[in-house]
Design a binder for these strands. Sequence first.
DNA 1: ATCGATTTCAAACATATGTTTTAATCAATC
DNA 2: GATTGATTAAAACATATGTTTGAAATCGAT
Lengths: 215, 215
Amino acid sequence: MNSISPTQGDTKQRILDSAEYLFAQNGYRGTSLRAITGKADVNLAAVNYHYGSKDGLLEEVIKRRLLPLNRTRMQRIDAVRQKARERGNKPDIRAVLMAFIEPTLLFKESTPEAGTFVTFIGRSMTDPDDTVRRVFQRFIMPLFQILFETTCEALPRLPRDIVLWRLHFTLGSLFHTLNICGKFSTDDIEYINTRLDADSLLALIIPFVTAGMKA
Amino acid sequence: MNSISPTQGDTKQRILDSAEYLFAQNGYRGTSLRAITGKADVNLAAVNYHYGSKDGLLEEVIKRRLLPLNRTRMQRIDAVRQKARERGNKPDIRAVLMAFIEPTLLFKESTPEAGTFVTFIGRSMTDPDDTVRRVFQRFIMPLFQILFETTCEALPRLPRDIVLWRLHFTLGSLFHTLNICGKFSTDDIEYINTRLDADSLLALIIPFVTAGMKA
DNA sequence: ATCGATTTCAAACATATGTTTTAATCAATC
DNA sequence: GATTGATTAAAACATATGTTTGAAATCGAT
């Protein structure tokens, strides 16, 4: 059935990989099916055959990586929450933010493919195209709710709406960072090393957003 | 003359206004010349006649509002720098950030048209489309350099590359905020008032980024 | 009113897009 | 080895796009 055939069974996979790469580089609207199938070296009609439509392909591209990543982030947040509950005190805000951000950056540097996908995340959260934004936000919404609640627990003296805004500021910083690091040409940004590893990036962003949260 | 006549006169202007609105709502790639001319109620060929091409129109849309806005921001930053120099001490980081962010938010609420344009800014800094990003970054680069230098003066104990990163985090927060506030449908973000005025937004974002900068 | 320049208009152009169709190919089953 | 079902291939389809064209309309000044 869906087992990998030896000769040509990887058509579906190759489409997924090419689409992921091109979506990250040129955006959803800026990537044509012909560009995808050309890069994947498969027939044009294969996309509609295997995924129904370009939108269907987009959804699969996102699902493949975002679901596992979100599972990891969810577990990390739950762990922080659980540990705090056991100890009878509130979660540490720095730990909460780490639980969300570190898996993202680690995932980014896990493989080159994952890296291009994370770039795609950064760009898509603010994509003018509803198609892209909706798919992403649909997948990230439950996770964001948990993150929000946990952050409120960590900062019980802050009004919830302020926590929410600061969380958005944090996401803005993170996504913009993912964006910068996804640039292939660095001619537009001077003096900045956009090829930092996850640990270095984490060491830069965590103090910033933690301080902002506690302000 | 300048009387409102459907046949003559302000064609060029009406194209500019319609393009600004539609670019902000659907992005550059997602907006067709036919949509623009249809909304402006002018002939399709008018865009190429008055602006040469769609790219030419984009540049004029950006220039019209971004040049004055950047002039204001530049003056504010210069003023902070000047005052500090007169007093013989370093600029206050909060004042520096205010000098950049406040004019942006004030401009945003000055008129509905300016508001939609600022939305366009927020989206375009990370637009996958090179065409859009390049135009914006070309216009904002000199300003960003001054902002960077002034921020370094305000935080002389921080290494320059860390200042630069934190400045990017700040821009990320700001742009993401502009984005959220530009949403026409709020169904994807819960519990957040995306229609705050400039002062309220400023009161939210300034403490966050100031604390992050000083972390 | 007339002339020349500018602007508007309808139509066509050339290309690009996502999708569908129909036939060929392949792998496994009987 | 023929049959069957799933996959691939080449072509066409329908529509959308930015741009150009040439004629009509409009305007400003003589």
